[in-house]
Write a protein that binds this DNA or RNA. Structure first.
Lengths: 354, 354
DNA sequence: CTGAAAGCGCTTACAG
DNA sequence: CTGAAAGCGCTTACAG
């Protein structure tokens, strides 16, 4: 029971003393609650400003003793790619960091090959009582339907990994997909000469007209338009994501046309790499996405030339933290938080932090 | 005065009740203080384990009400380069993040062109009462003298930006300098052909035999040895760091020998870039270090081809956090924390986070 | 070796 | 609209 000797230290007590009111009244002003006369409020506000008082966060949290619950809705790690391991990791790290501050994080998984599972999980979330939601809004229609319900219930939501504009989300944390595609275009322009042919490949079961992969494609195409590059560009969508289907589709194109470079718009580049390696065509240049073990292996073997990575773990981490800062610290949150566009090669992958 | 309804929630009170002792005794066991009989201690430990009790960090900090002071000793931003702005920024960010937890961070600056200033500041730090120190041990002899005194006083110290082995530091946070030079070697091998000539340049007033720049040089040379590259390598140390001196020294070499690529081992690459630009020799390839405005400008203009960056801001941030985690959370700290080796080009600098 | 009680700086019912 | 007091989950002297 050491007493606070530094009496000049400012707290609610000191403010109350100076304002000649009770501590509770100071607290009301501090937390912007009503039930304080304008006059008293003004007086207290003045003293707060004068003393440059900053509340003690720990004391506040300890006393308020309340618990916030966040729900996370992201794809489960699929058979074709374990990309989503990383955001999940980030979410877990953030969760354990703020656990002591009374935040509980529940994670819900959907199957990115099945829109229905998204909606099913969304319903589960709505049934419970969450104060905040983080989601990967992979399916536009289903996502909008979900977040509109959140909006009505006044629950803030954060988009990660891909964005939907104009949907009143608290913020977006993830790549600038268009720019990411644009950069891929630029990289590729280094690797090929004027007349060489490019094959662009989207591999995803669900590719509706709003699918986020298409934004990378737009950026990619834009690069060639803006810079007046005349390379032939062939594009295919592969909606069956198992290896055999990918193999078959790619083989089809490659037998018909001579392709010099392939750009795969997501982490499933390893399927294409596998095909190229198996058929001894690894002279065809290959660019794709994401720091996954399989991809790195093909990078090491020179089958994949570049991988573009966008800090998936950080996306999960920052998603939770954005909600936390907004809800608990009521601090301002950046509406857009774009990840860096990292270029991974055989040379620097060892030091990369995903 | 809401009461805790979830009585199953575990706290010291509950542990004390079960162990039939006072809360103070539980606290003694929890904090490993003496004055508890072996028998009681064992009993309490058993209950703690059984209940999987985790102390509430906020309550602990609030109650203990103590303040820790950290000292940071880093170079001041110099005229030749503002590299050190970034670590400073990181230190400040970390400091403001943990200010509420009773951590005070004082920053001391030395002149990296003057060893004496290092020692002077070190003395100032030792005179005060710090619980932890973060330093850039740029001058080996002076640094060792300083940290030995810290060691005696039982003050933990963290090295950032460059390391000194076997000095009982709490940890090192910064680049793997050798690997960083090695990577530069690899990059350069892409840019030149067999017989072309390389100029390696160290620009620093103080280059004693232990200077950290020399480790980059070692790594760089190692790349060429290991890979049996036979390129000629000329090396110069420039100890006068103003532009005119750099210009003169470089000019001297370039008039005598035909050089194809220049590798500058630190952020002062912009001086060389300026010279190359002014003399219309920007066809000579140039590689250097650090994401500084001046460097980026030369990158944009194709005078600099690559910049290697190693998250200087993060170094400062993590330095503080390492001390904090060790001292406050008594959590384990990684002995070595190597930064990624980022390759910055004209194409991706816009999205880089320093 | 052990315990009762005050205190850290806030918030929360409750009474007026 | 305002205040007195208990409480959040710990730690800290102090008394025994």
């Amino acid at each position: 029971m050491k007493k606070n000797i530094e009496t000049e230290l400012v707290g609610v007590k000191e403010i109350a003393r100076r304002a000649e009111v009770a501590i509770a009244t100071v607290d009301r002003v501090l937390n912007n609650r009503k039930g304080v006369s304008a006059k008293t409020k003004e007086k207290i506000l003045g003293i707060i400003k004068e003393l440059d008082y900053k509340p003690n966060i720990m004391a506040r949290r300890l006393a308020s003793n309340k618990t916030l619950k966040f729900a996370v809705l992201i794809p489960k790690v699929s058979e074709e790619t374990d990309y989503w391991k990383a955001p999940l990791e980030g979410v877990k790290n953030a969760a354990s960091e703020i656990k002591d501050y009374g935040i509980i994080v529940d994670i819900y998984f959907f199957d990115q090959n099945n829109k229905l599972t998204f909606s099913t999980e969304a319903v589960k979330i709505l049934e419970k009582d969450y104060q905040g939601v983080i989601l990967a809004p992979m399916f536009e229609e289903e996502s909008i339907s979900f977040i509109q319900k959140c909006y009505i219930k006044n629950i803030p939501y954060v988009f990660i990994n891909s964005d939907i504009d104009e949907q009143n989300s608290l913020c977006y944390i993830g790549p600038n997909l268009y720019q990411s595609g644009y950069l891929a275009g630029h990289l590729i322009s280094y690797l090929i000469s004027e007349k060489q042919k490019i094959l662009l490949v989207n591999i995803s079961k669900e590719i509706d007209p709003h699918h986020h992969l298409l934004r990378k494609e737009e950026g990619f195409r834009a690069y060639f338009n803006v810079n007046h590059k005349e390379n032939d560009l062939i594009k295919i969508d592969i909606k069956e994501t198992d290896y055999l289907s990918v193999k078959q589709k790619i083989a089809e194109v490659l037998t018909q046309t001579s392709i010099d470079i392939i750009f795969v718009t997501n982490s499933r580049v390893s399927s294409v790499a596998r095909y190229l390696e198996e058929t001894g065509q690894s002279h065809i240049k290959l660019i794709g996405y994401d720091f996954l073990e399989e991809n790195i292996n093909y990078l090491k073997k020179n089958v994949i030339d570049f991988l573009i990575c966008q800090k998936p773990q950080e996306q999960g981490y920052k998603g939770i933290m954005a909600l936390y800062n907004f809800l608990v610290n009521s601090s301002a949150v950046d509406k857009q938080n774009y990840m860096p566009i990292d270029i991974i090669t055989k040379e620097n992958y060892k030091f990369y932090k995903n």
